[in-house]
């Protein structure tokens, strides 16, 4: 038993560390990670199911150009992904992007992108 541990210790001396130098390189995030939302406005049918199921009431339906779209407050969001699962047209999707800490709370709100609407009337 103890011999095994000593052997392991010697092997560890010549191994690379498990940690990485973070800002320069990072450990890849898993494929199914639940991060920041991505909203495809062209697909959205304004059913409001995402706002209904959200356990933290982080989604609010706002009216833009006569149609209702979800406005997501990431500071309230618990990243459960229920909105993604319930969406009948797969317009809402969680990406692998992790919201970073910020001094500006308004940057955590995913507003409805009006410029996109103008291009596709």
């Amino acid at each position: 038993m103890k011999l095994k541990i000593i052997l392991k210790l010697i092997r560890n001396l010549f191994q690379k560390p498990l940690t990485v130098r973070f800002p320069h390189e990072s450990i890849p995030i898993a494929k199914g990670y639940r991060g920041k939302h991505e909203h495809n406005m062209d697909k959205c049918v304004s059913c409001g199911l995402c706002a209904k199921i959200c356990p933290n009431k982080a989604i609010e339906m706002v009216e833009v150009a006569g149609k209702k779209y979800p406005k997501i407050d990431l500071s309230k969001c618990c990243f459960c992904g229920l909105c993604q699962d319930i969406c009948p047209v797969k317009a809402l999707k969680l990406t692998q992007e992790i919201p970073q800490a910020t001094p500006d709370p308004s940057s955590l709100i995913i507003e409805v992108d009006k410029t996109k609407l103008d291009k596709n009337p």
Partner: peptide, 12 residues
């Protein structure tokens, strides 16, 4: 992380 989508809280 690879199964549930988060390291600690699996979110149901």
């Amino acid at each position: 992380e690879s199964i549930t989508g988060a390291r600690v809280y699996p979110a149901g």
